[in-house]
Computed example of a mutant assay.
Amino acid sequence: MRIGELAARAGTTTRTLRYYESRGLLAARRTGNGYRTYDEDDLRLLRQIKTLQDFGFDLEETRPFVDCLRAGHSAGDTCPASLAVYRRKLAELDALIDELGSVRAQVGAELARAEVKARAEVMATAEVPGGPEPRCELSPE
């Protein structure tokens, strides 16, 4: 198949395919008149790259999976290098989850502190006759 058909079937653009080719992730064969041609194996490589990128892998992290498929394995994640990338990505995700949990706890603490302070201010201004009007309303949440 030609580059336009491969791009359409893979859900990408011809520009992306040329970029992958320049990075050595996709190898085009050329016809006598210079057209790039691809086969079903190339489509499988592209689907592997797209799936990994959807999971947050950068393009270079997909290389071991592509190499594994090119080596004739039935799946791109059956080679030791691919498994190592999975392990690194999981460790990275775990660290991000821990960091987000910490940030969430801090935001929750700030919210609780701010709600107590806001209620105290509303109560203080309500107790003073003719005192300043509150500038904002507390939401019922």
Rank of each mutant, 00 (worst) to 15 (best):
A114K: 12
R104Y: 09
A71C: 03
M1D: 03
R104M: 10
E21Y: 01
E115S: 14
A10Q: 07
A114F: 14
T31R: 08
L83H: 02
E61T: 07
A71R: 03
D39W: 03
A71G: 06
R119T: 12
A112I: 08
S139C: 07
L83R: 11
E5P: 02
L96P: 04
Y19C: 08
P132E: 12
T14D: 02
R36Q: 05
S102Q: 15
R44W: 04
Q106H: 13
D58E: 11
D77T: 05
V122H: 11
R36L: 00
T13C: 02
L83D: 01
D39C: 05
T78H: 02
V116P: 04
D94H: 11
R44L: 04
R87E: 11
D94K: 08
R113Y: 15
G32N: 11
V122L: 12
D39Q: 11
L43R: 12
R18P: 03
D94R: 10
R2K: 13
I3C: 00
I3R: 01
S139L: 06
M123E: 15
P132Q: 09
E121M: 15
L93K: 03
D39K: 10
G24A: 08
L17R: 03
A8D: 10
E60H: 14
D54Q: 10
P134H: 05
E141Q: 05
S139P: 02
G4P: 03
D39A: 09
V103C: 08
E141Y: 05
P134F: 04
Q48E: 15
A81W: 04
P140V: 02
R44S: 04
T51N: 10
L111V: 14
E141A: 09
S102I: 10
V66Q: 05
Q48N: 13
D54Y: 07
I97C: 03
E21P: 05
T12N: 03
R47E: 14
F65E: 10
R70P: 03
S102V: 15
S102P: 08
D77P: 09
